[in-house]
């Protein structure tokens, strides 16, 4: 199954990541609306990397569970990590640049959301969306 990795350092990489995401979502068979949701979620998460960390990457792949197909986006960065994940997921939480919506927004737009973070090491966010 298809998988693509986008290195994220600068703001232009955010656009690259979401273009790759939209193309894959389209290939997997997501409709226009879901493509937009997925692409927007990727945009939010990729931007978080640019803002909070020096570098990171976005891995986008097709996934399958039983006879369900879907898309998975894994965003990893070497940033400062999140001390209080619960607080970070609360509406309006913000550390840098007034963009607290990033993670909560991505969570709302996707079907599954998972975050792991170690302070001083980095953060990994995994989101999934399944074809209906």
């Amino acid at each position: 199954m298809d998988e693509q990795t986008i290195e994220v350092r600068r703001d232009i990489d955010v656009i690259l990541a979401r273009n790759v995401g939209r193309k894959m979502a389209n290939e997997i068979g997501f409709g226009e609306l879901d493509q937009t949701r997925i692409t927007t979620a990727i945009s939010e998460l990729a931007r978080n990397i640019v803002i909070h960390a020096n570098r990171g990457k976005v891995v986008i792949r097709e996934i399958q569970k039983g006879d369900r197909r879907g898309i998975e986006v894994v965003c990893t960065d070497d940033g400062p990590g999140i001390e209080d994940i619960e607080a970070a997921l609360r509406d309006g939480y913000t550390t840098a640049g007034g963009l607290g919506i990033g993670m909560t927004g991505a969570k709302r737009l996707m079907d599954e959301f998972h975050v792991e973070s170690v302070v001083g090491v980095g953060t990994t966010v995994i989101v999934k969306k399944w074809l209906r």
Binding site: R18, R22, T36, T40, S43, E44, R47, I101
Partner: peptide
């Protein structure tokens, strides 16, 4: 022309 408008 914009297909994505994110929070930013």
């Amino acid at each position: 022309a914009l297909k994505v408008v994110d929070s930013f």
